[in-house]
Design a protein around this nucleic acid. Structure first.
Lengths: 134, 134
DNA sequence: TATACTTATGAATAGTTGCTCATATGTTTG
DNA sequence: CAAACATATGAGCAACTATTCATAAGTATA
């Protein structure tokens, strides 16, 4: 591990360039165009970030929260009701989700309204469900 | 947590039915059709499985392995070279990936060849990369 | 300003995870 | 069958995570 080789760095760039193309379809399902890109291992940092992104989806409580938000913005209180656990636990997890930029928060008086930060989050969830349902 | 209500069970069915529709595009990006489905929290088990699926993608070593396999099947030895860590560690992680049904294994003499188990895995990875690259 | 209400945070803890080391299981070949 | 090679597995450990409890920090309203 540790060191990043030139090859890895180069491969990282290739992947980044490729990503720009893939977003035509927001789901990144452009398999043919993508298939040739991964012959070299991309740079350590990218891999770490990808793992980290998936990690944000990898807990039942967080998945519940995200599911709840698929219907639209909700206050912490409302989320807590939906997701049968402590307000504190919900708040901690919302922080995790916010740091991963999967949700955004807006203050509304006493409440804070959380919502999914973009369509990507929605798409990734749908993807996960599709896989599981098969 | 613990108990599953009738509402949750019902919602679970709705989601399952929906999944059947979503797979027309293998990535599940059919946002409009999907948007209305998640007003009720789906059944506990489904949520758990979804979280579990993402968990399988949530480690750097496993991501590296999956990346390596995007180019085609590889033996454990080859994977170990690519992924710069112990053969044992790789083997343990391959087990995790196999249990999550993200990879499949076929014996070939002394070697065991691992490969991605289906296009979904590929799609999910691409999705993750796309999100990270933005 | 005092009170009620909502959300966030820190410390403590139990549970989980990923790694290494040693070793077992499988497979081929001499 | 024995030796060599490839892969899998179990125990032990260090690091990380999710939760709870207690409480702090914001905000609205009497």
């Amino acid at each position: 591990m540790s060191e990043t080789t030139d090859i890895e760095r180069e491969a990282g760039k290739v992947v980044e360039t490729a990503c720009a193309q893939m977003i035509e379809c927001p789901c990144g399902c452009n398999r043919e165009a993508t298939a040739t890109l991964f012959e070299e291992m991309p740079d350590e940092e990218l891999l770490f970030d990808v793992a980290d992104l998936f990690k944000a989806f990898s807990d039942t409580t967080r998945i519940k929260i995200l599911f709840a938000l698929m219907g639209g913005g909700l206050s912490v209180g409302e989320i807590t009701e939906t997701v049968d656990c402590t307000q504190s636990a919900v708040s901690h997890q919302l922080r995790t989700l916010k740091q991963a930029r999967l949700v955004k928060a807006v203050r509304d008086g006493k409440n804070v309204i959380y919502s999914l930060s973009d369509d990507h989050v929605f798409t990734m969830l749908a993807q996960g469900i599709t896989h599981v349902c098969e």
